[in-house]
Every structure is written in C-alpha cells, then in structure tokens.
C-alpha cells in the first residue's frame, strides 16, 4: 500500500520548486528523502502536513490523514513538564486513564521515566528531542513526519536518539516521512530512500530500497558504510 502524490506543483515568488513532481509514500515503512539543503525538502513536508497548500497536484487521500511531526527543534512548551508536553497532544482524543497510560508508556520507552515531572528548562538538548520523539509516537497519527530531527547534534547524541527512535518504531510501525541531508542517517533508517537532485524544479535522481532491519544496520556498521557509498554516488 502506498500513498501517492502526483503532479505536484509549487512555486514561491516565481521560483518553481516542484513541477509535475510524483512521489510514493510506502505505508508502514520509513520513507527517506535525501538531498542537499535548498531543494525543497521542508516545502514538501509542509505540503504533506498541510502547513502550506500546493498550487496543484493530487495528494490522494492525504488530506484526511492525521500527522505527527518531529521538528528540527524539540518545540516543547516551556511551561509543561515532560509528562505535560506529551499528554498535551492526547487530551481531546482519550479519557484520563488512557492518556496516563499512553503518556507513561512512551516516556518509559525513550528512557525518561525519572524525568517525567521535569520542565524542559532542566533537560539537555538530547532529552528534549527524545520528548519530542515520544510525543510524535504517542499521538495516533497515520503519518509521522521528521524534518532533520538529528541535525546539529553531536555524533554520540545522534546515535542514541536514532536508537531511541528505532526502538519506538519497531514497536509501533508508522508510515514515516524522514527528511535529511545526512547520508549516514538515511543509510541507517530508510526503507526507501528518495535521492533528490539539486535542480530547479526538484527531481528525484534515484530511489534506493533497503530491506535490512534498522536495528541490524545500527549493529553492523560495515554494511551501512557500503550503503552510504552507494547513496553518496548518487547524491554527488
């Protein structure tokens, strides 16, 4: 099963970013969009999530899909605790008991059980991003969008966040749209990797499929290195 976007057109101030752009989003898989900055990756996500409208194009039944989002920055509410930030997105959907169960479950999975009542002010950058990941999974979405959530983090932190993410995704296989400019992230996470060409309008240069489980890729750096090489070749 796949969600299809067809004939997408979008331009800003006379600058055409997408023209006749087609892409398939495979359900229950991590769809990775890899490309240099400035090729309209964020624009594509904004169209998918309904933050902005496309000029033209068939977005199949995307409009009815619920979406959760892991942004580049954690985007937490400073006046709510870890618990409060996650339950924030659940409030109108469940009863009190369910909210409590779901929130606690995701807090435990991302390893923040002891920080449940902390305000974001008191958390490290990595912890904050883990709250944001937990929030995205706690919300019952059809599509999970990730816009470079590991950008500007140091290597160790990135690795641990990716592990947290994969753990969650193994339990709860969402349809993921993951945007990145980082070949390593794409190689570790993507089931399908769309490599975008640095052109105007944006085109898909190559589609790469990887079947290996994400956990195995993390544990097997050599294999990942090979994939990285392939991706780099197309990305140039």
């Amino acid at each position: 099963m796949a969600l299809r976007i067809k004939n997408l057109k979008k331009s800003f101030h006379g600058l055409t970013i997408f023209e006749n752009f087609d892409i398939e989003i495979n359900e229950k898989e991590i769809n990775c969009i890899l490309g240099p900055s400035g090729v309209g990756k964020t624009t594509l996500l904004n169209i998918l999530s309904g933050i902005i409208d496309a000029d033209k194009g068939q977005l199949s039944d995307l409009k009815e899909k619920t979406i959760s989002y892991i942004f580049q920055e954690p985007r937490l509410l400073a006046w709510k605790t870890v618990y409060g930030n996650i339950s924030f997105v659940l409030k109108n959907l469940y009863n009190r008991q369910e909210i409590e169960n779901i929130t606690n479950k995701y807090i435990s999975i991302v390893g923040l059980k002891n920080f449940k009542d902390y305000y974001p002010d008191k958390l490290s950058g990595g912890m904050k991003q883990r709250v944001s990941i937990a929030r995205a999974f706690a919300y019952p979405s059809d599509i999970l969008i990730m816009d470079e959530p590991f950008k500007s983090l140091d290597f160790k932190l990135k690795k641990s966040l990716i592990v947290s993410f994969v753990k969650l995704w193994e339990i709860d296989k969402r349809t993921v749209m993951f945007v990145t400019h980082d070949v390593e992230e794409a190689a570790l996470l993507g089931n399908v990797i769309y490599i975008l060409k640095d052109s105007q309008p944006t085109e898909i240069e190559k589609v790469v499929h990887i079947n290996a489980r994400q956990i195995d890729r993390i544990l097997n750096p050599q294999k990942t290195a090979k994939t990285k090489k392939t991706l780099l070749k197309y990305l140039k």
């Binding site: 999530s49 979406i67 959760s68 989002y69 942004f71 985007r75 997105v89 109108n92």
Partner: peptide
C-alpha cells in the same frame, strides 16, 4: 513554531489560546 506544532497535532483554538 509552537503554534505550528499545535496545528499539526490538531489542537483546537481554545486550547492553543489557553495553553
């Protein structure tokens, strides 16, 4: 950015104002 986040998660206007 926080308002946008709330929109993505379908938080209604009253709650966006209050929270």
């Amino acid at each position: 950015n926080l308002i946008q986040m709330a929109q993505v998660y379908n938080i209604n206007k009253i709650r966006v104002f209050k929270e």
